[in-house]
Simulated scan of single mutants.
Amino acid sequence: MEVILESTITCPKCGHQKEETMPTDACQYFYECEYCKTILKPKPGDCCVYCSYGTSPCPPVQQGGKNYCC
């Protein structure tokens, strides 16, 4: 299975979208929206901001399955 490294994060407050390259060795817990400066944190049950607000889950989850946590 090929791991997708690009994910578009959508800010839940203002709707701003930005494509980001995800880290391959760790989950990203915080993310600041460049437009409204809101600090995003994962939703309950998600391990990182990419799993909560991105178009692709983080690489560790892609490799380990849905219940894998970074």
Rank of each mutant, 00 (worst) to 15 (best):
M1P: 06
V3Y: 04
V3R: 09
V3M: 09
I4R: 14
L5E: 14
L5F: 15
E6P: 01
E6V: 08
S7D: 00
S7R: 07
S7W: 02
S7V: 05
T8A: 03
T8E: 11
T8P: 00
T8N: 02
T8S: 06
I9H: 02
I9D: 09
I9P: 01
T10K: 13
T10G: 00
T10I: 01
T10A: 00
T10D: 02
T10N: 00
C11Q: 13
P12V: 09
P12M: 05
P12Y: 03
K13E: 05
C14E: 00
C14L: 02
H16A: 12
H16Q: 13
H16N: 15
Q17D: 11
K18V: 12
K18C: 01
E20Y: 07
E20P: 00
T21L: 14
T21M: 13
T21G: 05
M22F: 10
D25F: 09
D25Y: 07
D25Q: 06
A26M: 04
A26W: 08
C27L: 10
Q28P: 00
F30S: 06
F30K: 15
F30A: 14
F30W: 05
Y31I: 06
Y31G: 11
E32D: 14
C33W: 11
C33T: 13
E34G: 14
E34R: 12
Y35R: 12
C36A: 07
C36T: 07
K37D: 10
K37S: 13
T38R: 04
T38H: 02
T38V: 07
L40N: 11
L40C: 04
K41H: 02
P42A: 08
P42E: 05
K43N: 12
K43A: 13
P44D: 10
P44R: 08
P44F: 13
G45Q: 03
G45K: 03
G45F: 05
G45T: 05
G45N: 05
D46L: 08
D46H: 15
D46I: 09
D46S: 03
D46F: 05
C47F: 01
C47N: 11
C48E: 02
C48D: 14
C48A: 11
V49Q: 11
V49E: 10
Y50T: 03
Y50K: 12
C51Q: 07
C51T: 02
S52F: 07
S52H: 00
Y53H: 13
T55Q: 09
T55L: 09
S56W: 14
P57T: 12
P57D: 06
C58R: 04
C58Y: 07
C58E: 00
P59C: 03
P59T: 03
P60W: 08
P60T: 03
V61I: 15
Q62M: 06
Q62L: 07
Q62V: 09
Q63W: 00
Q63S: 10
G64P: 10
G64W: 01
G65T: 01
G65H: 04
K66L: 09
K66E: 13
N67W: 15
Y68L: 07
Y68R: 11
C69R: 14
C69W: 08
C69S: 15
C69F: 12
C70V: 12
C70F: 11
